[in-house]
Design a protein around this nucleic acid. Structure first.
Lengths: 344, 344
DNA sequence: TTGTCGCGTGACAACGGTGTCAGGCTTCAT
DNA sequence: ATGAAGCCTGACACCGTTGTCACGCGACAA
């Protein structure tokens, strides 16, 4: 036992301080805090007392550095925005799954900025996260190949990767949109507008495709298509303009939650909420309390998050089968706004 | 220059690999990646090329271990639930502020569980976060004193600490509740019910206190008080029972966002939404689109998050003035439900 | 008795970086 | 010519932990 070690007055206790106080070697302390075998009961108790007395908390970063597996018990989660309800539901699910594996989650928002997406991934890399769960905005994900080469599993949620073959968790946006539009068609609508955020985003493209497919299958001519609506305000103005004209469509398919909210506001302000039918993509809080209540195709973000987390951890546990794409079903929630008959 | 170092085939490039490839010492590589002065242009370029060639990303954890300040550029953020809109808004604001300081944020939810709160703080500690921003559920925060002794700044948001003197960011719940209740009184109500989640939570207690104060100041007898409503369903049932009886109150003050939602549902289901006045605490998505639209006292969670982040970073920058409590104003948003006149 | 084995233990190197320090080389004033 | 000062550079120790290995000891079989 080394007698040279003196506990510094300030600063956090280290394993050496514990060893000195307990009168054992540092390796023995390491054994105790990691619950390894082959430590006598008496020694274990001495060490545990010293741990409590010094309020010792092991430095996980230092451990990760030395440990063979080099795991930091940390996950990077990239989201559109942590305060978007859809993203937040994914976040909660991933965090819940991670917690069971003693893993902490870095949550980060890229907003609409592909540069920030990359900067955030690099920030995660510098911190040596064990895995990445990504919603992305950039249109080329080859830059992530390096990470995968280093053994860092990458799972995409909500939007598929481009230029990279990786695990992906998606809603079938095309199919769900077909359901939404078919619902409007079944209620007699023949003039259905499509509103979405940026068509550069793959989900918006697929929803648009579903919209066109459903109409084509029914032999109906597409209605007005308004895209690039990246905020509630933009959607509000777009819908306001759209339904104010003489040839207003009889129904709207708002293909994203912020667009739906803007659309609802515009219809309410114009007193048209019972004249123009509407189906939204994504459920929103209180949608059932509106008059008319909002009919939506609801994704299941919690399930998406759970599935994504399960994929990452499966990869970390050694699953090296080919990349899989999981499709989480969406469901039509009929509430009223989608069943308004055409008025013209 | 050491010729003994060979780049391993697998695994991530280290500073040593870069040094070997560039033909310089590791310390010089360190200088380049940290943008230190006194490196010749030629050397700098050689190193930069090697960094790119090997796809080198420094291991921040390893650096933090050795560096004097010992900063991990990491923050721990504890929230009720990352998918609660109020919490999520705080999250976004903290993350935004942290990003400007190259700091990543661990976001975590404790649900309703004080044990999990402590476990999460310990998980943060093990990862040596630079600071903690906490919304809490436990009723004794003395356990955090250890962290502060180690120089980790702790800032409380939304709910004040107990048994600890620390920076705190709050809404003036008492004052905001007085505003809400005074608004109902001004519209002629004399029978106002109070509904809240658990009174063990300090915010709920203060809101209750504001309710009682406003009534006492007006010489009005308190109405029914229903507490412990910790879910939308519980609030729904409580309100349903409350307004179904013969002596139903003429107005409700629902002092938390989930309680408001349950209350709205109950009133709508009974067709009483235009008979019973209601003011909610906390704004909710789409509250302005309801009929009647919901009058609320709205907190400003984004501002709370920004303020909390500013406090943490000020402390990290050496501010050692006494703990401050910042009060973020709430504002009354008049929309309709709070202006319904008493019907009895 | 002797050898083998397993248990409990600690010395030491190593993980990937950064702080310290000293040495070689210029530059420039004395 | 001599010295002082400043720039550029790398050797080396060290941050806090875990992996490896070797050692002493008691139990037990031969």
């Amino acid at each position: 036992m080394s007698e040279t070690h003196t506990r510094p007055v300030r600063g956090r206790a280290t394993i050496r301080d514990v060893a000195a106080l307990a009168g054992v070697g540092i390796k023995t302390v390491s054994r105790v805090i990691n619950h390894e075998a082959n430590v006598s009961v008496a020694t274990r108790e001495k060490v545990e007392q010293a741990v409590v007395a010094l309020n010792f908390t092991p430095n996980q970063g230092a451990g990760a550095l030395r440990r063979g597996d080099r795991k930091t018990l940390t996950l990077g989660l990239l989201l559109d925005a942590v305060d978007n309800p859809f993203s937040a539901a994914i976040h909660r699910a991933v965090e819940g799954a991670a917690w069971e594996r003693q893993t902490a989650v870095f949550g980060a928002s890229f907003g609409d900025d592909p540069l920030r997406e990359r900067a955030l991934v690099e920030a995660f890399t510098r911190r040596r996260v064990d895995g990445l769960v990504l919603t992305t905005i950039s249109d080329d994900h080859t830059y992530l190949q390096t990470e995968r080469d280093q053994g860092v599993p990458v799972v995409f949620v909500d939007r598929p990767p481009r230029g990279l073959d990786a695990d992906t968790v998606l809603t079938d946006n095309r199919e769900a949109s077909i359901t939404a539009v078919a619902h409007l068609l079944a209620h007699g609508h023949r003039d259905i507008a499509f509103l979405s955020d940026d068509l550069e985003v793959s989900t918006a493209r697929q929803r648009h495709e579903g919209y066109r497919t459903a109409l084509a299958d029914a032999g109906v001519v597409p209605g007005p298509v308004l895209t690039g609506l990246t905020s509630v305000e933009a959607a509000y103005e777009a819908v306001r303009g759209l339904v104010s004209g003489p040839d207003r469509p009889t129904a709207l398919f708002t293909s994203q939650n912020l667009v739906s909210i803007g659309g609802i506001r515009a219809l309410h302000d114009l007193g048209l909420q019972n004249e123009v039918a509407m189906v939204g993509f994504d459920d929103v809080f209180l949608a059932d309390m509106l008059e008319p209540a909002l009919t939506v195709v609801a994704q299941d973000p919690a399930e998406m998050g759970r599935t994504a987390a399960a994929r990452v951890f499966a990869r970390l546990d050694g699953d090296d089968s080919p990349a899989v794409t999981s499709v989480v079903p969406a469901r039509l929630v009929v509430r009223g706004s989608g069943e308004i008959p055409p008025t013209r």
